[in-house]
Amino acid sequence: MPVNVHVDENLIYKRPSSLEDVHTHYCPGCTHGTAHRIVAEVLDELGLQKESIIVAPVGCAVFAYTYFALDGVEAAHGRAPAMATGIKRANPDKIVFTYQGDGDLASIGIAEAIHAAVRGENITIIFINNAIYGMTGGQMSPTTLPGQSTTSSLDGRDSAITGQPMHIAELMASLPGTAYSVRRSLHDAKHTIRAKKAIRKAFQTQIRGEGLSIVELLSSCPTNWKMTPHQSLEWIKEEMLPTYPIGDFKT
């Protein structure tokens, strides 16, 4: 007899209640969807949906507050940690997190990110590192790999002119107010499970009031990398991981 998957007791996998039942605008094969999903699962599992506030960035995740079933705000480009600071100070008993890409956090918003950590601001940062500006169509970011071709570095990033990739998880770990800083990857199921565990630890760090927590997630951008979804997951593994090792830099 066929199993009726439309009956709740037969469901073994469903949309987390912290995610809205809506279509996203993310490109096929992009790992934003995975990142959203595991953040939402953690919020569900910790019972935080009604207690959490998301601060969305400028970038591909600009509408993240639409996709998460949480109170949310849309920050100016790079200013999410500053806005989260104001929100957390006004709601000290609530869970406040930012969701930012590498253009938003590592480039235009680095001062806000660093000083939130300097203050030991009790917030969580989900940092999506895909080594490129996604929303504006594929320009070089501070985490672009040497030699990586982008629309603003067509012949590949020339480190003699534009410097070396920026290691955010390590940088944030060096600041005394950071309580938890790790890097994880979303290129396969095993690593995604590890990423989810780290996200859980980050939120638990905030619940315990220990200071700033950040999880850097190596993510794919098939559209702007000009690869298939499968190729881009391989590219994370082969090209990004050697530069951006998975690790716990502060726990």
Binding site: R79, T85, E112
Partner: peptide
């Protein structure tokens, strides 16, 4: 109540934005 010296005016106004979004006089 909250007093915080920000790292810049850029950060200060966005902190105000966050607190005011939370419905407190900021």
């Amino acid at each position: 109540r909250t007093f915080l010296q920000a790292e810049s005016e850029v950060a200060a106004i966005n902190m105000v934005y966050g607190a005011a979004s939370s419905g407190v006089r900021a």
